[in-house]
Design a protein around this nucleic acid. Structure first.
Lengths: 222, 222
DNA sequence: GCGTGTGAACACCTTCACAGCA
DNA sequence: TGCTGTGAAGGTGTTCACACGC
């Protein structure tokens, strides 16, 4: 109705970069910018930025560029930066603890942390109490958490995932190094740190072996 | 020479999943498996797994499947799991500290951690001393680190990145929420935690708004 | 017969290049 | 004239479906 076509996933993934670029330019006192300038700030090609923005309507002015304040508001509205997103983190180990602090800034806030290790219960992580894992359902209902973060071992991950889905969550971010199964209406994203390192190791293994000098990619990465 | 075509990046990114699937099946006492079984274990389509493996030669046997030990050895060789990869981590904050522990398992090992905050110098993170950031070059040379991990603020990231490149590293993993610029022969991968959450927030924002029931994706995620 | 390996079709994403509007 | 918005082309990745070899 409001949007003509379904915004491509690849575009959605770039919106945070665009918001950062907009904030940067606004902080420098700019009020308008061309796709060229915005793309430079975001580290991509101008044509791609224009195509991405076009999915949200005609936000620019031909011959002029984009009004930064208007664009910022429009994109922010779509990403939901105006709202505040309550998170629940499962796992208060090294990673979970770091995430508890990392994720405690607008538009996100950590409203609950649970762990199966009862020695951690009652401790705080970034100001939030660690609760027993069996209270997960009650906590989600009570706090209204809408995004679940899975920071537990590969073995425990599927159970935790099922628990979060059963608690009514539809958006999950997993750091566990396993493929998780979720119902079709649940959005699951994975961050696999070991995988990232492995990809680098792969390329490093092949640097001298098959590294034709000059067949690499362009300079900027997002 | 040895490999006919350049292995697609997407394939390389799936190799860690395949290694995990292989280890799982081997741990269950299996010695052979079909692409169907392997794909199930990795959470993908059989055809995709066959296509991926085909880039490394004819590793299976028609009518039978794949020999798990052989395949494990072959893939491990390509990913470089036989070697041990020394990492240097820049930034000993919440995230850097968690990563120092997270990344201290084969085939990776943390050989150095640096931070610009001198109050952290001399402390330990997962058994490794935190050193002054200005010693980065010397430490890389001394320890032979080949992969650099950037766990600093967005503002400091480009400087740190330049420092790691100047120190001779060609493989970098950045957790800073900015687009970094590197020379063409450097492999840079980014993990943007805020971006992951933002994508979930985007979908959550649109769950009721435009959520046609039934236009979602299949069940497994890798 | 069975399951791999792969040509061909398909889907998605990015880049090019330019028409069209301020 | 200058820059957006976009049709068309190009590229990359995935799925289909079947010929081929064990």
């Amino acid at each position: 109705m409001t949007l003509p076509d379904p915004v491509p996933e690849a575009t959605i993934e770039r919106l945070p970069s665009y918001l950062r670029a907009l904030d940067d330019l606004l902080a420098h006192g700019r009020s308008t910018a061309s796709s060229q300038e915005l793309a430079d700030a975001a580290g991509i090609q101008p044509a791609l930025l224009r195509r991405d923005l076009s999915h949200f309507g005609s936000l620019g002015t031909r011959g002029v560029g984009y009004d930064l304040t208007t664009l910022r508001a429009e994109l922010g509205h779509h990403v939901g930066t105006e709202e505040s997103w309550p998170l629940v983190i499962v796992g208060a180990g090294n990673l979970g603890s770091a995430l508890a602090r990392q994720f405690s800034r607008p538009p996100f806030r950590v409203v609950a942390i649970v762990d199966s290790d009862e020695r951690l219960h009652g401790q705080r992580r970034g100001g939030v109490l660690v609760s027993p894992q069996r209270e997960l359902g009650r906590l989600v209902a009570q706090t209204g958490a809408v995004i679940g973060v899975i920071a537990v071992t590969a073995e425990a991950a599927q159970d935790v995932c099922d628990g979060l889905v059963a608690a009514g969550l539809h958006s999950l971010l997993s750091f566990a190094p396993v493929g998780l199964h979720v119902p079709a209406d649940v959005h699951l994203r994975r961050v696999d740190l070991a995988q990232e390192l492995s990809v680098l190791a792969y390329h490093e293994s092949h640097r001298r072996t098959e590294g034709h000098p000059g067949d690499q990619r362009p300079e900027a990465v997002r």
